[in-house]
Structure formats: C-alpha cells, structure tokens
Simulated assay, not measured.
Amino acid sequence: MRNDWEYTLYIPHDPRAVAIGRRTLRDILTTHTLPALIEPAELLASELLTNALRHTTGPAALKLRQSGPSFRVGAWDTDPTPPTITAPTDTATATSGRGLHLVNAYAADWGWFTVNGNLGKYVWCELGTELKPD
C-alpha cells in the first residue's frame, strides 16, 4: 500500500505566515511519522515562502506532497518572474539573498514553472531519504 498524500496551505501576504507554514509542516510530518525530514523541510519551506512573500504583493501557498520515496515542498506566488540564484554571499552573516542557495544545497532536486500562463509561479524542491553531502 502506498502512503501518498498532499496538503496545501493558502496564506495571505503577511510575513507572519512563514512561521504558520513551518508549524503546519512540522505537524504534518509528525503525523505522517517523518521526523527526519522536519528540520530540512522547515528550512526549505521557510526560504520558499519568504521569497514568495518578499518578491510579490499577493497571496501565496505552501504545498507539501509525499509520493513514493520523495517528499516535495513547494510555494506558489502571484509573480510569474523566474526565480534566480543571486551572486554568492556570506550565508553565515547574510540576512537576505541566500534562499535559493540553501534550496540548491539541501534539496535533492528543485525547479519551477509558471502557473496558468501568467498567474504566478510554483517553485518546488524535493527531499529524498538523504540530504546532499557538503
């Protein structure tokens, strides 16, 4: 029996919603007995949601999906502009500009696509059973 599932949390354009997304993600992974994914998934969800709220003016959504051996975290926002990885920064002291660097470092895979033409974009990343090595 496969244990596939999917949840979507729609959030307003409010920076406090990132913390609500993290707590929701933690509850979902705990309920589905995936505690090893909580910390990396919280980090990645925080970065994706923060980017969605920082670079747009509309609402956003956090989508979580377990399908077979992979777990996907994604964020939808209202801006169809492609995400870009900016020039490397000192991630130890930077307060911004590290989101997609962290996604690229911790996720097994990531990508994005536009939603319904120009109604926004969906940025996703996947975690497998092990994180990428340093």
Rank of each mutant, 00 (worst) to 15 (best):
N118S: 10
C125N: 15
H13Q: 11
A87C: 04
R26L: 05
G68N: 07
A60K: 02
L102C: 12
K132R: 15
C125R: 14
S96P: 07
E47I: 00
T24P: 02
R98H: 07
L127H: 03
A75H: 00
W124C: 12
R16S: 10
K63V: 10
K121R: 15
A61F: 01
V73K: 05
W112I: 10
P80K: 06
V123G: 12
T93C: 08
L34H: 12
Y106M: 15
H55D: 02
V73W: 01
A60T: 08
R16N: 13
D14C: 00
R72P: 00
L119V: 10
L100D: 11
D27N: 13
L102Y: 04
N3E: 12
R54M: 03
D14M: 02
R2M: 09
A52Y: 00
E130C: 04
I20P: 01
T57F: 01
A45Q: 04
E47D: 07
V123D: 14
P88R: 14
A107I: 02
R98P: 07
R72A: 00
G111P: 13
Q66A: 15
N118T: 13
D4I: 03
R2L: 06
I85V: 12
D27P: 00
S96D: 15
G99H: 05
T33F: 04
L37F: 08
D14R: 04
A36I: 10
P15H: 10
G120D: 03
F71I: 04
I28P: 09
W5T: 06
E39I: 07
I85T: 14
L100K: 09
E39M: 09
T93A: 11
E42S: 12
C125M: 14
I85S: 09
L62E: 12
S67I: 05
F113K: 15
L9R: 05
Y7L: 07
I20M: 08
N118K: 07
T84I: 06
K63Q: 14
I28T: 11
H13P: 05
W124R: 15
T78A: 03
P35V: 02
A92K: 13
V103I: 12
T129A: 13
K63I: 06
W124V: 11
P12E: 14
P80N: 09
A52S: 03
A52L: 00
V73I: 10
L100I: 08
A36M: 10
W112Y: 13
H101C: 05
A75K: 00
N51C: 02
P59R: 12
S46N: 08
A41P: 09
L64Q: 09
L49W: 00
I20V: 15
I38A: 08
A92G: 13
T56P: 01
K132G: 08
A92R: 15
A52K: 02
E126G: 03
P69Q: 06
A105S: 14
G68R: 05
G117A: 09
A105G: 13
E42T: 11
D4L: 04
A61E: 02
P59L: 05
N3W: 01
W110V: 08
Y10R: 15
A61G: 06
E47G: 01
V18H: 03
A45G: 07
T30A: 11
T56V: 00
T114M: 09
L119T: 14
